[in-house]
Design a protein around this nucleic acid. Structure first.
Lengths: 131, 131
DNA sequence: GGCGCAAATGTTATGACATTACATATCCTT
DNA sequence: AAGGATATGTAATGTCATAACATTTGCGCC
């Protein structure tokens, strides 16, 4: 595995890995002030690299970041996220049929996709549970 | 149709309808200063209402807004967006198979979905064209 | 008409998220 | 040791969004 992360990247990665829910860049920064980080950019730069490596995902609808749930097979092409608005937990999954359908649309429209976002906001089984 | 928009809502709607690409709330505000708008909140409140009415969509990955492309059938359940990063144009489509697959996942995981976002960033046929 | 509620508006201030610009340091290769 | 690529540090600024509070407008109802 890519253990050759730089100091800042490793700090950010560790923070995200230990979190129960997605964190904003500024929250990460606050948690790392004790380790010497002071400016947003230090966090954003680490996040950018980690995202490139597939170790971290950005949740667009939240403006926040999560550690990838499948750090091994981290080259999944299309990932969907189910985000609980109550407890904050995020589940990550992929679906080949969905991928095929979206690919079909883009191909037939001459659209060249670069990045696809699928995010389902709602309540997880634990939080929706009751009713 | 709901022509009973308030003044601010109508102004924002008109601005978005006439735009070629998604606009940020602040861009809308700038275009409406001549009409008396001064504060972000005036725009955000109108956008909130228009979004509720299904006349406007928010693009999460852009932090921007577009007029719905299908203002008549504006109760589509799941809409996907293809966003060109070169020219900014957005195409809107829906796919029942994708919807069924995502519904299947949420049902089988006891997840109660509230809002689903599907956004494909890339280049449209016109802009990717060449190669 | 005028009372009262709900919705919309106006305004200021502030909070939250992200990047530009520039200086410095570190590592790896030759 | 030289030189380039990458990573860092720091300050300032830009961009997106909401809180809090006061005021106005539309409208049903006695």
């Amino acid at each position: 595995m890519s253990a050759d992360l730089t100091r800042n990247q490793a700090l950010v990665m560790k923070t995200l890995s230990g979190a129960e829910a997605p964190l904003s860049a500024y929250t990460i920064l606050d948690r790392l002030r004790g380790d010497g980080l002071r400016a947003p950019l230090q966090v954003y730069r680490a996040l950018e690299k980690l995202t490139e490596l597939g170790l971290v995902h950005r949740l667009e609808s939240l403006n926040a970041f999560v550690a990838c749930a499948h750090p091994n097979c981290h080259e999944q092409e299309l990932i969907a996220f189910a985000i609980c608005e109550a407890c904050g937990k995020v589940e990550e999954f992929s679906d080949d049929v969905v991928k095929d359908r979206l690919d079909g649309w883009t191909r037939s429209h001459g659209f060249r996709p670069a990045k696809t976002t699928i995010e389902i906001r709602g309540n997880c089984s634990g939080c929706a549970g009751g009713k």
